[in-house]
């Protein structure tokens, strides 16, 4: 009887010890990371979750037929990277990138073949000069009694105190010019921080939907995108917004917010687009990638992915003004002409 008890306890201790480290015993093996496996994973995930195949009329299956034969098992990482990067470039989307420790693939066709009409040296010398104000991330100067606000990146945070100062300065100016040319985007929150001080009532400016499945038409229902007015002082006068082809992503959203504002007018060239929110993911070999996973349309159902059109197009060579920025000059004229 005593021996049986000892055996029982021995079995228990053995069982308790054996069941330790279970989490390590059942841990999955690393996925296959051969060039073929990496290619298949990337192609399949983009096939399932990219949001603009129909709108851009891209046959992703035929893209696979082109790039798949270029994959072979002994290819070097940089060669694989180049093939995958070129495959992703077929999407012609600034929100699509492949990232490795040695390179970042991109497609910048949305601005590369277009004049930008933005000369930082000219802006610094003629308009901002040396005595401009620095209000958070914004460079601010008086131009012909208008408040000129130059905002270079939506990645840099605009605080409520920054906007309080802009609104305070508007007491001494006849109109507001917001220059977001070549602003590549960043946080949409900063766009809201500006727009919410320029409205008195909630404003719907666009509609958005997200992919919900692998089918090209698997999306959530459209949902309104709104700007809600902030508490505190507001400026409800005229606003001129300057954009170009390099105004992208959150800057496109900001341009659309301003377009929906009755007292605002867009000048210059259309924005570059970037209406899909980028989704991030990782490949079996540790490289990461991103791609658009949503769609946004304006109030007329036009995709923001293809850019926001301006109210006053200023891209004709005859409109250039030597020694001056013709976008700013056109904005000043409009602000002065219709008080």
């Amino acid at each position: 009887m005593r021996q049986l008890r000892i055996i029982n306890r021995f079995l228990l201790i053995f069982l308790a010890t054996w069941t330790m480290s279970c989490e390590e015993i059942i841990a999955p093996k690393s996925p296959e990371s051969s060039p073929r496996a990496v290619f298949e994973h990337l192609w399949q995930d983009v096939n399932n979750r990219y949001s603009f195949f129909e709108e851009k009329q891209i046959d992703w299956e035929s893209v696979k037929q082109i790039y798949s034969p270029l994959i072979h098992e002994n290819m070097e990482p940089d060669a694989l990277f180049d093939v995958l990067g070129e495959m992703l470039a077929e999407l012609e989307d600034g929100h699509v990138n492949l990232l490795s420790t040695f390179n970042r693939s991109r497609n910048w066709s949305w601005y590369e073949n277009f004049p930008l009409f933005y000369d930082q040296q000219l802006i610094d010398d003629i308009y901002l000069r040396t005595d401009f104000r620095i209000v958070g991330p914004m460079h601010v100067q008086t131009v012909d009694n208008m408040l000129y606000v130059n905002y270079r990146s939506f990645e840099r945070r605009i605080s409520q105190a920054n906007m309080d100062e802009i609104i305070r300065l508007m007491q001494f100016h006849e109109g507001l010019i917001i220059d977001v040319r070549s602003n590549g985007g960043g946080s949409l929150q900063n766009a809201h921080s500006i727009a919410s001080r320029l409205i008195e009532q909630e404003l719907t400016y666009a509609r958005q939907r997200f992919k919900t499945g692998p089918g090209n038409t698997d999306f959530t229902p459209w949902a309104n995108l709104r700007i809600t007015p902030q508490s505190g002082e507001k400026y409800l006068g005229k606003v001129a917004v300057l954009t170009n082809r390099r105004s992208y992503s959150s800057t496109t959203f900001f341009a659309q917010m301003m377009k929906a504002l009755p007292q605002a007018r867009l000048f210059g060239d259309q924005t570059g687009g970037g209406g899909g929110i980028p989704v991030f993911a990782e490949l079996p070999n540790g490289w990461t990638y991103r791609f658009s996973g949503s769609q946004t349309v304006d109030l007329d159902e036009v995709q923001l992915e293809f850019g926001v059109q301006v109210d006053q197009l200023l891209t004709h060579p005859s409109e250039l003004m030597p020694g001056k920025d013709h976008f700013i000059e056109a904005a000043v004229s409009w602000l002065k002409s219709n008080p």
Partner: peptide
């Protein structure tokens, strides 16, 4: 959800 952090029904 498939794409976002919030489940799809919270997106509309």
């Amino acid at each position: 959800s498939y794409i976002t952090s919030p489940p799809d029904p919270f997106l509309h």
